[in-house]
C-alpha cells in the first residue's frame, strides 16, 4: 500500500503554489493587456485551464508551460478549434517530429516567422 505522508502533501501543495505564482508573474510581465480584465480568482482559473490543456499535449516541463501559455495569450485559448490555427494543432500532433518539447519549440519559432511576415 502506498502511504503519502502529511509532509509530502504539504510539499506538493507548496510546489503547486510556487508554480502558480510564477505563472501569474510571467503573464503579468509579458501579457498584461490580455489579462487586464481578469480578477485574481479568474486568473487562477485561467492558469488551471491552460495547465490542463498543456498536459493534454503531454507537456511537463516549466519551460514548455511558459511557451505554451505565451502562444495561448497571442493566438487565443482554443487555437486548435480555429480554422486559421489548425496547422498549429497538427504540428503539435506530429509524433514523428521529435519529442513534445522539441515540437513546441519548433512551433514557437514558426509562429515568430509567420508573425514577422504578417506585418
Amino acid at each position: 500500500m502506498l502511504i503519502v505522508r502529511q509532509n509530502q502533501l504539504l510539499q506538493i501543495q507548496y510546489k503547486n503554489e510556487q508554480f502558480r505564482t510564477e505563472m501569474k508573474e510571467f503573464l503579468q510581465n509579458f501579457f498584461p493587456e490580455q489579462i487586464s480584465t481578469f480578477s485574481m480568482h479568474e486568473l487562477d482559473e485561467k492558469i488551471t485551464q491552460l495547465f490542463n490543456r498543456s498536459t493534454n499535449y503531454g507537456l511537463f516541463k516549466k519551460q514548455d508551460y511558459l511557451r505554451f501559455f505565451s502562444l495561448c495569450m497571442i493566438f487565443g485559448d482554443n487555437w486548435e478549434h480555429q480554422p486559421e490555427q489548425t496547422w498549429m494543432h497538427e504540428r503539435m500532433q506530429q509524433n514523428h517530429a521529435g519529442d513534445v518539447s522539441q515540437r513546441l519549440y519548433e512551433l514557437y519559432q514558426q509562429c515568430l516567422y509567420r508573425l514577422e511576415e504578417s506585418i
Binding site: F19, K61, K62, Q63, S70, I74
Partner: peptide, 21 residues
C-alpha cells in the same frame, strides 16, 4: 507581438528545464 514573444521565450529559456512535478 513578435518582440513580446521573443522576450517571453527568453524568460522561458532562463527557467529551468525540469519536470515541475
Amino acid at each position: 507581438v513578435v518582440t513580446r514573444l521573443v522576450h517571453a521565450d527568453a524568460q522561458a529559456q532562463q527557467s529551468s528545464n525540469e519536470d515541475i512535478t
